[in-house]
Measured scan of single mutants.
Amino acid sequence: MPSETPQAEVGPTGCPHRSGPHSAKGSLEKGSPEDKEAKEPLWIRPDAPSRCTWQLGRPASESPHHHTAPAKSPKILPDILKKIGDTPMVRINKIGKKFGLKCELLAKCEFFNAGGSVKDRISLRMIEDAERDGTLKPGDTIIEPTSGNTGIGLALAAAVRGYRCIIVMPEKMSSEKVDVLRALGAEIVRTPTNARFDSPESHVGVAWRLKNEIPNSHILDQYRNASNPLAHYDTTADEILQQCDGKLDMLVASVGTGGTITGIARKLKEKCPGCRIIGVDPEGSILAEPEELNQTEQTTYEVEGIGYDFIPTVLDRTVVDKWFKSNDEEAFTFARMLIAQEGLLCGGSAGSTVAVAVKAAQELQEGQRCVVILPDSVRNYMTKFLSDRWMLQKGFLKEEDLTEKKPWWWHLRVQELGLSAPLTVLPTITCGHTIEILREKGFDQAPVVDEAGVILGMVTLGNMLSSLLAGKVQPSDQVGKVIYKQFKQIRLTDTLGRLSHILEMDHFALVV
């Protein structure tokens, strides 16, 4: 994948999101292997301009796509893939009243899908469409860049269908997702969380590099694949309309690839034109409109599966009536509230959605109805927002919020430890010299600072030695090549209790 991002070429006709291997024109390309080798690009942008032909009021008969309808489940399912879809609609009884809503608040519980998330729908649909058009064949390999849930859905379907599955996901995604993927037989590649989507090191860039190296491999490409919004247009939206008897006044959905909100909203605009569509985008993402909503100094966020630093091709923002931004604290607070007060075992993005819903639905009156999409299960986040310690460490809970008995030293300040200034190293000294210094002084790690004293990161003896043994660096290389740029900081005025929580999850903390 090139470091400079080429513009994806656009073909003359058809839909841009065809499933299957992508040609340089962004659509299915038939021909000899030699032709494909000559024409197939190194990668295709996940934010390529959409060429979708959908228009409100256009006859369904003019759609270029294969459409399906929700099917009634048999008493005995032939395999677990038949437990994807037909998820329950559940009334939220307490939270709406707590925040003064007059309307009825309903939750579409997508964590009841077989793999635990709304992404099971698009995973199965992308595979079925690729099999139907002859792209996927027995023994082929599926590769997908994902925040985890699409990966789980694909790995689940691949396990049943017999495909090899490789999932490329950023490091910030939970260990629970990784464990589930491994249990399903998927191979996992992790990428830096802070890598831009168009960087060769991003999950998108690495996935395309693997595709170019592995024979008979395919990126189904949830960011561009029409099967993504079509899955929701054909099934999720129809289920909502049936469950609500066609009567709903507002739908609120958090947005990642945009397939969920695009597919549902398009069908609702056709069948229930008075329904307002509300999009939820986390602070630090750029999906919301108008652009002024996205202006923030924050560039990272903890909530998973929603928000991006690019506009995915499948996201149709014209069908969203209003956007709201959400933050991590309210997302996790509301997710825990949904679990504790409503018994809905949902993930953090569901918290984002409901946090926005109780604001947006203030305009609705008694007798009206708001539906929220709860995308995934708490299963993926047992060591994250479900953990009091994690919430404390991230600053989303305060010590006084917890009532468990603490040891005698818990409320003492870090400054009472009488710490001395640490050994520091410059980023320009060599790895070999740094190892000598650390061994001589008896230290395992040291902060790396520039000549102005600005902290650049941390270097550890173990990481340097393993990097040297693996051949990633040489003793003569500058130590700046092996620094940890993500590390926890703590102030002298913070409590030892807070430091204790940090050290339970990290090997060190830097006192500043």
Score class of each variant (00 low, 15 high):
Ser3His: 10
Glu4Trp: 12
Pro6Gly: 10
Val10Leu: 15
Val10Ile: 15
Pro12Met: 09
Pro12His: 11
Thr13Glu: 09
Gly14Thr: 12
Cys15Asp: 13
Pro16Lys: 12
Ser19Tyr: 09
Ser19Pro: 15
Gly20Tyr: 03
Pro21His: 10
His22Asp: 04
Ser23Trp: 14
Ser23Val: 03
Ala24Thr: 14
Ala24Met: 10
Gly26Ala: 03
Ser27Asp: 11
Glu29Asn: 12
Glu29Phe: 12
Lys30Thr: 10
Asp35Trp: 04
Asp35Ala: 15
Glu37Met: 07
Glu37Ser: 15
Leu42Ile: 11
Asp47Phe: 01
Ala48Cys: 11
Pro49Ile: 08
Arg51Ile: 06
Thr53Met: 08
Gln55Trp: 05
Leu56Val: 13
Arg58Thr: 10
Arg58Asn: 09
Arg58Ile: 12
Pro59Thr: 12
Ala60Tyr: 12
Glu62Gly: 14
Ser63Val: 05
Pro64Gly: 05
His65Trp: 01
His65Ser: 04
Ala71Pro: 11
Pro74Leu: 15
Pro78Gln: 09
Ile80Thr: 10
Ile80Arg: 02
Leu81Asn: 07
Lys83Gly: 10
Lys83Ala: 10
Ile84Trp: 08
Gly85Glu: 06
Thr87Trp: 00
Val90Asp: 01
Arg91Cys: 02
Ile92Cys: 08
Asn93Glu: 06
Lys94Met: 14
Lys97Arg: 11
Lys97Val: 07
Phe99Asp: 05
Leu101Gly: 00
Lys102Ile: 09
Leu106Ile: 13
Lys108Thr: 02
Lys108Ser: 04
Lys108Met: 01
Cys109Gly: 03
Cys109Ala: 11
Phe112Glu: 03
Phe112Arg: 01
Phe112Ala: 05
Ala114Gln: 11
Ala114Val: 08
Ala114Met: 04
Val118Thr: 06
Val118Ile: 06
Ser123Gln: 08
Met126Asn: 02
Ile127Leu: 10
Ile127Asp: 06
Ile127Cys: 04
Asp129Ser: 08
Glu131Phe: 01
Glu131Asn: 11
Asp133Tyr: 14
Leu136Ile: 10
Pro138Asp: 07
Gly139Thr: 11
Asp140Ile: 05
Thr141Arg: 09
Thr141Gln: 08
Ile142Ser: 03
Ile142Asp: 01
Glu144His: 01
Glu144Arg: 02
Thr146Gly: 04
Ser147Glu: 03
Ser147Val: 00
Gly148Trp: 03
Gly148Ile: 00
Thr150Lys: 02
Thr150Glu: 01
Ile152Arg: 00
Gly153Ser: 02
Leu154Tyr: 02
Ala155His: 01
Ala155Thr: 10
Ala157His: 02
Val160Met: 08
Arg161Thr: 04
Tyr163Ile: 04
Cys165Trp: 01
Met169Val: 07
Pro170Val: 04
Pro170Met: 07
Lys172Met: 05
Lys172Val: 02
Glu176Met: 06
Lys177Leu: 02
Lys177Asn: 02
Val178Lys: 07
Leu181Tyr: 00
Leu181Phe: 02
Ala183Gly: 14
Leu184Gln: 06
Leu184Lys: 00
Gly185Tyr: 00
Glu187Pro: 10
Val189Ile: 07
Val189Arg: 04
Val189Asp: 04
Pro192Cys: 09
Ala195Phe: 04
Ser202Lys: 06
Ser202Gly: 07
His203Leu: 05
Ala207Pro: 01
Arg209Gln: 15
Arg209Thr: 07
Leu210Ile: 07
Lys211Leu: 09
Asn212Tyr: 04
Ser217Leu: 01
His218Ala: 03
Ile219Gln: 02
Gln222Met: 03
Asn225His: 02
Ala226Tyr: 09
Asn228Glu: 00
Leu230Trp: 04
Tyr233Ser: 04
Asp238Thr: 04
Glu239Leu: 00
Glu239Pro: 00
Cys244Arg: 06
Cys244Pro: 01
Cys244Phe: 04
Gly246Lys: 04
Lys247Val: 02
Ser254Cys: 15
Gly258Met: 04
Ile261Asn: 01
Thr262Phe: 01
Gly263His: 00
Arg266His: 08
Arg266Tyr: 03
Leu268Val: 08
Lys269Thr: 08
Lys269Ile: 03
Lys271Gln: 13
Lys271Ala: 10
Gly274Ile: 12
Cys275Glu: 00
Arg276Cys: 09
